[in-house]
């Protein structure tokens, strides 16, 4: 166990950069493997719709020039990478002249805010319940009740969302049906606005928590049972330590390690949003952006969101690489 060395950080960071570069290159290459080009296809669609488009050749040629498709592939590639570095993904096709950056910039905070809270709650709740399921000191009644609570795990999140909407928004009218905040409100940092955001976010967050906490609970239970069989558990009991201390410091502390890795990866994929949940609640997050981009064949938006997703996943892996040696002393910062 050593402290975080500059060498280790640089090694991990270069792996991070290489990952991003490879992924970005793939996103660039794959569409270009397909025959034809998007401009011809677009003008072709216009011709089919309108019957005849005057000077279509000139239009095609002009747009090809405008989008830089006449340059050689290496030039296009370098320009593409340059744009990525500046986070410039071009214009949305469906909402021209809005840029992809603007669309993503508007949606991303909502999704990250909603899902970060939901996924974090899920992680802690799931692991806590999983630990209780495996722990010997847990009251029998709790052990029987937890699996009952986990029936939602076997339900798709859309059904859970509809179920929650029906009970709490439609029938009981405790929560609003749609939106991220009260219509007509201007986003600000006022208490009123924040309350509205929490009020609107509760059901979407709850549907994510309900559907996925069982996954963490089962994983944690398995890990706890493995740890329970370890020799150091015997010794911990023989030492006459406080059972709660043993649970926390000996069992959970060791059982949680693989869960933390899985959590980091979950956080990375979080920016793609819960497409269906966001759609059902008409929540203005990334899930909705991706959903409508796919429907409108809005390629720049798809490309931009894919890249953000890759970036976040790689970032999450980088962060976990950097903090993992702190939570598991067996992983060393030193080069082995």
């Amino acid at each position: 166990m050593g402290r975080l060395t500059l060498g280790y950080f640089l090694r991990r960071f270069s792996i991070f950069l290489v990952t991003i570069w490879l992924a970005a290159t793939l996103i660039w290459i794959i569409p270009r493997l397909a025959p034809g080009d998007p401009i011809t296809a677009m003008v072709g669609r216009m011709i089919r719709q309108a019957g005849y488009v005057e000077n279509s050749d000139i239009i095609i040629e002009g747009w090809r020039e405008r989008f830089g498709l006449n340059d050689s592939l290496p030039v296009q590639y370098v320009r593409y990478l340059g744009n990525l570095v500046r986070m410039d993904f071009g214009y949305s096709l469906a909402y021209f002249p809005t840029t992809v950056g603007e669309i993503v910039g508007r949606a991303l905070p909502w999704t990250v805010g909603l899902l970060l809270v939901a996924v974090t709650i899920t992680f802690f709740l799931g692991n806590f319940l999983g630990a209780l399921l495996a722990w010997r000191g847990t009251p029998k009644l709790v052990k029987y009740l937890i699996p009952v609570g986990m029936i939602f795990t076997s339900i798709p999140s859309i059904l859970a969302a509809i179920f929650l909407l029906y009970i709490f928004a439609f029938f009981l009218d405790w929560f609003p049906l749609t939106g991220a905040y009260k219509a007509g409100m201007t986003p600000s940092l006022s208490i009123e606005f924040i309350t509205s955001v929490i009020h609107h976010g509760t059901l979407p967050a709850l549907s994510v928590v309900l559907v996925s906490f069982g996954y963490w609970a089962l994983g944690m239970r398995g890990m706890m049972i493995t740890v329970e069989g370890e020799d150091y558990m015997h010794l911990a009991r023989a030492k006459g330590l406080n059972p709660l201390y043993v649970l926390y410091r000996y069992m959970i502390r060791n059982a949680i390690l693989p869960q933390v890795t899985a959590f980091a990866i979950t956080l990375g994929t979080l920016v793609s949003g819960q497409v269906l949940v966001e759609y059902i609640f008409a929540y203005q997050g990334m899930g909705n952006v991706i959903f409508s981009a796919l429907r409108n064949q809005d390629f720049p938006v798809i490309q931009g969101t894919s890249f953000i997703l890759i970036l976040m996943t790689a970032l999450a892996v980088l962060i976990i690489d950097l903090i993992y040696p702190l939570i598991d002393p067996r992983i060393s910062y030193e080069r082995s």
Binding site: D231, Y232, L235, R237, A238, K239, G240, R253, D328
Partner: peptide, 20 residues
């Protein structure tokens, strides 16, 4: 426990908590 009755355990390799 431990004040009166202590244990030197069987599996030396796994008898210590790896995270402490």
């Amino acid at each position: 426990r431990w004040i009166k009755l202590a244990l030197i355990p069987q599996g030396a390799m796994n008898s210590l908590n790896p995270t402490m």
